[in-house]
Design a protein around this nucleic acid. Structure first.
Lengths: 146, 146
DNA sequence: CTTTCTGCAAACGATTTGCAGCAGC
DNA sequence: GCTGCTGCAAATCGTTTGCAGAAAG
C-alpha cells in the first residue's frame, strides 16, 4: 500500500475516533489491490489476510465503512462484498456474471453519467427524492462463461 | 388480480412443470399490487398473505422465479425482496432511501436507457461481457426523510 | 390414485456478539 | 496505564430443509 493511502486510512480513522491498527491497514491494502469487490472469505484467503481473525474482519469492515474508507456491496449471492470507497479509486460500475457469480469493475462512461445526472434531476423534481449516489450493475455473461 | 395475469401465472408454472396452486396465485397477486419490491415479512403481513406459511412463501418464490414470474431484488438491508418480473410490469429502476430503507419504483427514462445501451455495447466490444439486463439504483433521501 | 404442495419444527450458515487478554497512543 | 482492539467460541436470525398429511390433476 502506498504512503498516501496509508496516511488517508490513519486520518479518516482518527476522524471517527478509531485506532489505525495493523489489521485495518491490512484490510484496506487487500481491497486496494483488487479490481473488484471482495467477499470476507476472499479477504481471508489473501496472503496478507491470512493473519486476520474472521470476526475482526467483520468488525473492522463496519468501522472502515463508517470512516468512509470502504463501501459495502451487496450481490445476488450469499456473501456480502466490500471495495475501497469511490473517492479512493475511480467511479466505476459492476459487471456481474450470472453463470460464475464473478464481479468485475468497469470504469464509468462520461456520456452515461451525464444522462443519469439528467434523469436524477428530473426525478428530484417530480418525486422529491434527493439522490446522493447511484449504482449501475450490468448483469450477463463474462467472457469466460459466454 | 386480473384474469390476464392469472392465466399467465398458470401457463408459466405449467411450462416448468409446477402446479398453479392458490398460494402461488396469492403471492403473485400481492406483489402485483405493490409499487415496490416486498420483503417476505411484508408479503406475510399483507391481508392476502395472512393465510400463507412462511416456509411455503420462501419455497414458492424460488419456483415463481424459475417460472419467470417474479424477480429477486437484493438490497443493503437484512431482507431479500421480490417484485413481479419486468415483462409483467414496465421497465423501472429503484429509489433507495438511506434513512428509512424504503424502496420505490421509478419508471425508466428513455434517454438514459439509450445511453446505457450504448455503454453496454462499448463494454461488450472491449471486455467481451454479454449484458443480459441491468440494474440502476438511485441511493439518497426520500421526500419524507429529506 | 399418484405426485407435488403445504405447514410445522428443526437445521443451516453468514454474520454478530460476550468476554478475557493484548496493543495503540 | 487506560481504553479500545483482537481472537475465540457461542449466540443470532434470515433462510432452507425433512417429514407427514392435504390438495392438484
Amino acid at each position: 500500500m502506498d504512503d498516501g493511502l496509508r496516511s488517508t486510512v490513519a486520518s479518516r480513522l482518527q476522524a471517527v475516533n478509531q485506532r489505525a491498527t495493523a489489521s485495518r491497514q491490512t484490510i484496506v491494502s487487500v481491497l486496494g489491490q483488487a479490481s473488484r469487490p471482495l467477499t470476507i472469505p476472499e479477504i481471508l484467503e489473501t496472503p496478507d489476510g491470512r493473519s486476520l481473525a474472521q470476526s475482526s474482519v467483520y468488525r473492522n469492515l463496519v468501522v472502515l465503512e463508517e470512516a468512509g474508507l470502504v463501501r459495502r456491496v451487496v450481490t445476488d449471492d450469499e456473501f456480502t462484498r466490500y471495495e475501497l470507497a469511490e473517492d479512493l479509486t475511480e467511479h466505476h460500475h459492476h459487471l456481474v456474471c450470472v453463470r460464475c457469480g464473478r464481479i468485475e469493475d468497469v470504469p464509468a462512461d462520461a456520456h452515461l453519467e451525464r444522462s443519469l445526472a439528467d434523469a436524477t434531476e428530473e426525478i428530484a423534481r417530480t418525486t422529491g427524492f434527493r439522490t446522493q449516489h447511484h449504482r449501475i450493475d450490468l448483469v450477463g455473461l463474462c467472457r469466460q462463461c459466454a
